[in-house]
Simulated scan of single mutants.
Amino acid sequence: MANSLVSIQIIPKTKNGENSIPYVDEAIKIIIESGLKYEVHPLETTIEGDLSTILQLITKMNERMMEMGSYNVITQVKILYQPTGIAMEDLTGKYH
């Protein structure tokens, strides 16, 4: 079972103020390719998994923003760490 829920909002600074949505789409693609359980929300994406794996994923996302031409990126992260196990369903299941 996963030991963490991590919500991520990535805000890349583009060179000439271009639309950042293609950058955000690329960050979400990296999450999808990770194989981890995730949910995309309007202002952030929540990932369920092992904390160290998710932190490595965040590093990969930030590095990809630089490769795409962003000159800096703000990444806001919220972490729920529970060694005994945690799932998104535990917190939001009653709403589905």
Rank of each mutant, 00 (worst) to 15 (best):
K60F: 08
M1Q: 09
K78S: 02
L51G: 02
L57I: 06
M61I: 15
M61H: 13
V24C: 07
P42K: 05
V77S: 03
T45G: 02
L51A: 08
Y81T: 00
P12Q: 01
Q9K: 00
D25R: 04
D90R: 05
M1A: 12
S4R: 08
N19W: 12
E44I: 05
I11K: 06
E44P: 00
E33K: 15
T92E: 05
N62Q: 11
Q56H: 12
Y38E: 04
Y38N: 05
E67W: 12
I86M: 00
T45Y: 00
L36M: 15
M68Q: 03
N72G: 03
N62I: 04
I31N: 11
T59P: 00
I11Q: 10
N16V: 11
G85F: 02
L43K: 03
G35S: 06
E63H: 03
T46P: 09
M61D: 07
S20M: 14
T84S: 13
I32H: 14
P22V: 04
I32S: 11
T92Q: 01
D50W: 11
S52T: 13
G17H: 02
K94G: 02
M1I: 12
M65W: 10
T84A: 13
S7N: 04
D90I: 10
I32L: 10
D25P: 01
A2E: 06
I28H: 06
T92D: 02
S4W: 01
I74D: 14
Q76T: 12
G17F: 01
N16Y: 15
S34N: 09
R64D: 02
I31Y: 10
V6T: 09
T46Q: 09
I10W: 10
G85V: 06
Q82C: 13
G49V: 04
I8M: 03
I79E: 03
P83R: 03
M68P: 08
S4Y: 00
E18I: 08
G93F: 10
A2T: 07
T45Q: 03
K29I: 04
I47E: 02
I58S: 09
L5Q: 06
V40S: 10
V77H: 00
I47L: 03
M68Y: 01
I11C: 06
V40G: 12
L5H: 08
M66L: 15
L57F: 14
M68C: 03
L55T: 09
H96G: 14
I86F: 06
E26H: 10
E39P: 10
V6S: 07
L91N: 14
I32A: 11
K15V: 06
I79S: 04
S4K: 08
T75M: 02
Q9G: 13
I8R: 00
G49H: 07
M65V: 09
K37H: 05
V77D: 00
E48D: 03
I74V: 14
Y95D: 10
P22K: 09
